[in-house]
């Protein structure tokens, strides 16, 4: 079995954004351009997260999802602001393959059971945003780490699995966007608690951090944002196609400055690195790539 490398695209309005601790969002460009680039360079799946949806109580990615699904033939997970079975139906109809539930699941855990029964467990990803407390416990948060729930993470992961979650996406809010590496203690605790695949998210700043998460926390997938986005910005510059960001703080993009903690890397580079260190990865044949026609 290969490790899944999953570019995660946080989306606000029409733009791909990236923050630190899920806050302070910077605009990076058009999500579809990044998505296409990642597909063509061997991404195993994609995650689209509507990062302001919870604030407004709705997911607004339907058009972006549909445009993506027309040209990208790998699994797409969509999250953010999905509250009801109807919300889930809508994004699946738009072209998503899986949905990530956080706030709705914490408020009403039974939605996991119901959604899993209707759409199949493998369609339901439970996303957990964890923040470490002074006493060492991890508590689950909602609304991009803003809203405390008092729910303890490990027990919640176990409950989510029992209710029918097909995967757990575990985010360390403390590490997210920092480049300090995944929270291995947190990730390890979750993989030990559940039998379903676990996807680690939040913190990698170098390729070595990815290897660590696989070797030391037995994850099934790695969600990666900054590393890939900054690599594409450095090499690809989506602005070159004439489509630039339309809103948000684009100054950092214009100045060309990138975070010094980050050592950006592309998917192929990452996969070759992991492969050379004994982590099996899918290296696709360099043949025809659909989606350009």
């Amino acid at each position: 079995m290969t490790i899944r490398l999953i570019p995660r695209l946080d989306i606000k309005g029409p733009n791909l954004v990236k923050g630190i601790h899920l806050e302070g969002l910077r605009v990076l460009g058009r999500p579809e351009e990044f998505a296409r680039h990642y597909y063509e360079s061997g991404a195993d799946e994609l995650i689209y997260m509507d990062v302001v949806a919870s604030l407004y109580g709705r997911n607004s990615l339907h058009e972006i999802i549909t445009r993506t699904a027309r040209e990208i033939f790998i699994p797409l997970t969509v999250g953010g602001g999905l509250r009801t079975i109807d919300d889930i139906t809508q994004v699946l109809r738009a072209g998503a393959d899986k949905v990530a539930l956080n706030t709705a699941a914490l408020r009403n855990p039974d939605i996991i059971r119901e959604a899993s029964r209707i759409f199949g467990a493998s369609t339901i990803v439970v996303a957990i945003e964890a923040i470490k407390q002074l006493d060492g416990r991890y508590l689950a948060f909602t609304d991009n780490g803003r809203q405390e729930t008092g729910v303890e993470v490990i027990g919640w992961a176990r409950q989510a699995e029992e209710l029918g979650a097909g995967e757990i996406l575990i985010t360390s809010v403390d590490r997210e966007g920092t480049g300090l590496g995944y929270d291995l203690e947190l990730t390890r605790a979750v993989t030990a608690a559940v039998s379903v695949p676990v996807i680690a998210h939040g913190g990698p700043g170098r390729m070595e951090h990815l290897r660590q998460a696989v070797a030391e926390a037995q994850v099934g997938g790695l969600a990666v944002s900054s590393l890939l986005h900054y690599d594409f910005l450095k090499k690809g510059r989506p602005g070159a196609s004439g489509v630039g960001p339309e809103e948000g703080n684009v100054d950092f993009l214009k100045s060309g400055r990138l975070d010094s903690r980050m050592e950006p890397a592309g998917l192929l580079q990452i996969k070759r690195f992991l492969g050379s260190r004994g982590v099996p990865c899918r290296l696709p044949n360099e043949g025809e790539v659909p989606g350009r026609g």
């Binding site: 079995m1 290969t2 195993d44 467990a121 493998s122 039998s195 695949p197 997938g221």
Partner: peptide
């Protein structure tokens, strides 16, 4: 077949590329 308790246990469902 699940083999619980085994650290290298099989994760079901299989999700991913093979």
């Amino acid at each position: 077949a699940l083999s619980p308790g085994d650290p290298g246990r099989i994760r079901v469902p299989q999700i991913g590329w093979n």
